[in-house]
Design a protein around this nucleic acid. Structure first.
Lengths: 240, 240
DNA sequence: CGTGACGTTGACACTAGTCAAAATTTGTGG
DNA sequence: CCACAAATTTTGACTAGTGTCAACGTCACG
């Protein structure tokens, strides 16, 4: 009956997908039930330890993934070992670059993560067949471009203190959707990773964090857990 | 006759477009003859003085443009006036952001430039109608994303000398397609703009340029004209 | 020939980096 | 559950690299 149909939009959708956090994400949100069924048959859900590489810089890419849980960092490294994190991705973001054979950067789990891996050929075919999917990927690319350019401003023109405040603000707004004036969260990154994201050294990051703590802008519990009593104060320090 | 048709692919194409540098560009390369005619009827070619703004940060966008000649810089400015150039665009690049009402950055002519301006609504309609155009815009977005992330590495992890070398290398490879070992070109940016691109001060840029000159890596004629006797040497200093 | 914009150079200050050591947290095996 | 080892973070002393401020040069233009 029409009523039954309109009341259950999940008819024909695999059970795994129904409870999936990325069901409405960039990729799966654009697929029809039949496509979801086929994709789900060939995908594997996989746990990734923190620090484990998902895609290697300069390597041929044979699969794409959805982040189901955790945080993934996108890195560039120089031959001499200097490193820069050029992006952070959160669930349910999509990892992968259509149209290009190999990746110019590496993707690595920053926290223990869970990803859903799609074979490249299959998803490429669905991209070719599905205008809405293409549109979603285009929109995500533009979103990432904006994020990258915002961060360029941070890297080029902000002081160490502003950089650290920017990072805390970024994590806070991505981890905690609620915009109450007080916030608490766990840092998904080590001090070394924060340094690689901000273009600083570990020591400078540590010193700036201590300074923010002594100023009362944040409280630090067990290194990773941060409490921000007043988000407005933190935002002020970003001077955006 | 078939022969005539295959020998002249420009049948039905406006005269202005036939001699246009951007004819095979991201936008016009994807359009059919009829679309080109319509777009050409509603476009205006315009000269823009160096330093003149094309799109303002935070302003509603009512038009898109093709760069026909010259170099355009994409800038972000902070409330206190600190500024960062987040991208350089060369002819025949496309300027504009589909899907979004207003620009998060400003576009400004770095050199005297010539642009071809399209009304937004018309091009939006063509984007909706033309899969190849959407694909080209998507591909350009990905290219810009790669460029932005490459530059993040430069901003975050390279020294002043490496930064200046990176910029010279970037300009040299975009201005002079030939890859002979020796190259000469005009800088499209003032020292102040170079500083804003590299996250440095004017003085540091100036000092590093003199240093490169004294090392024999470059020759400087009239401030803007640069000669690179040995590109490999310059590339080595980028330590990419 | 003067004027103003742009670029260079110098002296000095200060931010962030380097190197080293101590403190804290995390993980492991008994 | 505790003790110890390893990893991570913090802190300190010192240095190097950029920034700041100021003066001087140079070039284009009226």
């Amino acid at each position: 009956m029409d009523i039954a149909r309109s009341e259950d939009p999940d008819i024909g959708i695999p059970a795994t997908c129904r409870i999936c956090e990325a069901r409405q994400g960039v990729v799966c949100g654009a697929l029809a039930a039949a496509q979801l069924r086929e994709l789900s048959r060939h995908s594997t859900r996989r746990k990734v330890d923190a620090g484990r590489e998902i895609v290697a810089q300069g390597e041929e890419v044979t699969s794409y993934s959805n982040i189901m849980d955790g945080v993934v960092k996108l890195c560039k490294v120089m031959p001499d070992g200097r490193q820069q994190i050029v992006g952070l991705q959160f669930a349910p973001d999509f990892i992968g670059r259509p149209f290009v054979p190999e990746s110019t950067l590496s993707a690595e789990a920053a926290t223990p993560a869970e990803i859903c891996v799609f074979p490249r050929g299959l998803l490429d075919r669905m991209i070719a067949d599905t205008p809405e999917l293409r549109h979603n990927l285009h929109a995500q690319a533009l979103k990432e471009l904006d994020a990258a350019r915002d961060w360029m401003l941070t890297l080029g023109r902000r002081t160490a203190q502003e950089k650290v405040a920017s990072l805390l603000y970024l994590i806070a707004t991505h981890a905690e959707p609620e915009t109450t004036s007080s916030t608490a969260f766990d840092l998904p990154l080590s001090r070394a990773e924060i340094a690689d994201f901000l273009g600083l050294t570990i020591e400078t990051v540590s010193r700036q964090m201590t300074k923010l703590r002594k100023q009362g802008v944040i409280r630090i519990e067990n290194n990773r857990h941060i409490v921000v009593p007043d988000m407005d104060e933190l935002e002020r320090l970003v001077s955006a």
